[in-house]
Amino acid sequence: MIKVNGLYKSFGKLEVLKNIDASIDEGEVVVVIGPSGSGKSTFLRCLNLLEQPTSGMIHIGQEEITNKKYNPLKLRSNVGMVFQHFHLFPHMTTLENVTYAPIKVKGLKTADAKKIGMELLEKVGLSDKADQYPNRLSGGQKQRVAIARALAMEPSIMLFDEPTSALDPEMVKEVLDVMKSLAKTGMTMVIVTHEMGFAREVADRILFMDGGMLIEEADPASFFTAPSSKRAQDFLQKVL
């Protein structure tokens, strides 16, 4: 589903991603972990072209999205993204947040979009907040709305960029629970997170990054019990 070949990304002189090769299958849940500044988020943001790769190729489905002629808008309505700081639209109600893109990008009728929007809010347990503005919601609720908003475009891939890092500890679970149930539906998911317990439980595969390089990839059981690289061993020692 996703194929990354020789991906490089630099910001000016700073090389953030160095020669990343990775492939992610349909329905797979891949968790990217690694120390801060290791390039995890940049990697994720390259997958929906929020960052333009400096060189290398990314294929999503049959399309080479790194091709200069490729229209990123087409890609982004198929790849949903959830941000650390939610980025809900503050001047729209919860339901409007969810229905905005389906109406304006996909051209859905308002009534149809509302129906789908309410179903999604139901799924994330927030249908009672449909008419509230985001500032009335807690962090965990905001993130669940953000997930519903991304899902409303019916993407085939979901990217999560540290979705629980900005949350109070007691709200982490409600967001992770939504993500777990989403993983069960067979959604292809790429998740950058520091939640090791979650990674272990939900991931099909772990990608470990450090210094802009993909150091190790393994299934969670072997990664968390017996990481093969020295850097992964050091990292796990610090976080576990």
Binding site: N48, P72, L73, G80, H87, F89, Y100, A101, K104
Partner: peptide, 17 residues
């Protein structure tokens, strides 16, 4: 907030809209 633009972009919303 720059995140607003990113959120819209990530949803595939064209620049004008």
């Amino acid at each position: 907030d720059k995140g607003q633009q990113e959120a819209a972009m990530a949803l595939g919303v064209p620049y004008n809209k």
